Computed example of a mutant assay.
Amino acid sequence: MRRFYDEYVKDSDRVEEESLLRVADGYPRPTVHDLRRTATTHMSKHGLGKEVRSRILNHKDLSVDAIYDRYAYFEEKAEALQGWHAYLKRLLQKEFGDVDWVEFYGRRMELVTCTEQD
């Protein structure tokens, strides 16, 4: 994520054209933990319990009952992550229209990777 962000902000024309990230002086660059914190806060706001949030974040449960609770919460985690995906997709669509960002940046990153390897 740091490499992507650092490369992104080097190209001021691209930042201006796409407006994908709000880059401002004095703000630290985003980290993966910022994404985790934002996703967890969103899920809390929408009523997802601490047990499922902790499992999504892959936090170790040190409580006594964790020894006995072997349920994996797959369905609950999947539902929560699908909700988070839908929320992010709506934000991007609102801002940029129907651009498939995963496909767009996936292809761009493939080109960068191929160029770096040559």
Rank of each mutant, 00 (worst) to 15 (best):
F74V: 15
V102R: 11
A66I: 00
D11W: 04
G97R: 09
E17D: 09
T40E: 04
Y5V: 13
A24P: 00
C114D: 15
R3K: 09
L20E: 00
F4L: 11
Y68H: 14
P28F: 01
R22H: 02
V99I: 13
R90W: 14
T40L: 02
D61V: 04
S63G: 03
L111Q: 11
V102A: 14
K89H: 13
W84M: 05
S44M: 07
D13A: 10
H85E: 14
K89P: 02
E95W: 05
G83I: 00
I67L: 15
S54L: 11
Y87C: 10
H59T: 05
D13R: 09
G97Q: 09
R108T: 12
E79T: 03
K60P: 00
D100C: 08
N58Q: 15
Y8V: 01
M1G: 09
H46G: 00
Y87Q: 11
K45S: 08
R90Q: 15
P28W: 00
A78H: 13
E75P: 01
E16M: 09
V15W: 04
L62E: 10
G83A: 10
E17S: 10
Y8R: 04
T38S: 03
K89D: 15
R37L: 04
T40D: 07
F104G: 00
L111H: 07
L92Q: 01
Y71L: 11
L62V: 06
R70G: 12
R108E: 13
D13I: 05
Y5R: 02
R70C: 07
T115F: 01
Q93V: 15
W84R: 05
L91F: 02
W101K: 07
H59E: 09
L88N: 08
R22C: 03
R107H: 10
L21Y: 11
E16N: 12
Q117Y: 05
E116T: 11
L92C: 03
S12P: 04
N58C: 10
K60L: 05
R29G: 05
Y71G: 07
A72Y: 02
G83K: 03
G49N: 14
E7H: 07
R107F: 04
F74P: 00
T113R: 10
A80M: 06
L48N: 01
K10M: 09
D118G: 12
R37I: 03
E103C: 06
H42R: 05
L81W: 08
Y8L: 06
T31P: 02
T31W: 04
V23Y: 01
Y68S: 08
P30A: 08
L35N: 05
D65E: 14
M43H: 00
D118L: 08
E76D: 13
D69W: 04
R36V: 09
M109P: 04
M109V: 15
N58S: 13
Y73S: 03
Q117E: 12
V112C: 02
Y27V: 10
Y73P: 04
E76S: 07
V32C: 11
D100Q: 11
C114I: 12
M1T: 10
Q82D: 14
T115V: 04
K50T: 08
Y68R: 08
